[in-house]
Design a protein around this nucleic acid. Sequence first.
DNA 1: ACATTAATTGTGT
DNA 2: ACACAATTAATGT
Length: 215
Amino acid sequence: MEEVVLEEKLKEQYGFIFEPELLKAIMETGKYRKIPDGDHIIEPGQPIQHMPLLLNGIIKVLREDENGDEILLYYLEIGDTCAMTMNCCLGNKKSDILAVAEGNTEMILIPVQYMNEWISKYDSWRAFVFDSFNVRLKEMLETIDSIAFMQMDQRLLKYLRDQVKLTGSKEIKKTHQQIATDLHTSRVVVSRLLKKLENNNEIELHRNRLKVLQF
DNA sequence: ACATTAATTGTGT
DNA sequence: ACACAATTAATGT
């Protein structure tokens, strides 16, 4: 990608947060990456060498158990960075999570060795890192609540709301099966609940997509 | 335009 | 949860 365009994108998303010095450092050390929809960005067991700064797109962060079962931990949006990655960076450990691109995703990868240096060097970086750590933690607590205490219909509603907020569109382009995997349940359950919502005129059902009519 | 097929969605047990 | 029916989208003829 053109250097100039990249710099503009960076400023667009992070210009208000980071001081000019830091932006320059990011431009110098970061590597631009474009990830197509559905590609795995990080897999469990992989050592982490970079930390991502999202330019656009969404990243889905999942936990995977030994059977290959997955649970959705949280989503990363533009302007976010990955708390799990930071955790790994500090200890130079391997990844505990699976990160998948959702939609075409562009990001800048920063080698982990700069993490520590920048934390002491740039106030804005330290603030950014801690802040996003907080946000992630909060989101994960929500997810835990939702798994532990909420009924499936509530979880589905939350999921739909999140999708709308996340993509900025009331159209959700997913199959029932995909939703079921995200929520860690069976497709049949999702189908039945969605059908109920449709009967209540809360959503519109189509093949491979659905439309939210309320909220 | 029609038939075939594969994938997704709906429903009863 | 499973099995099957119904529907839809995609593809070839």
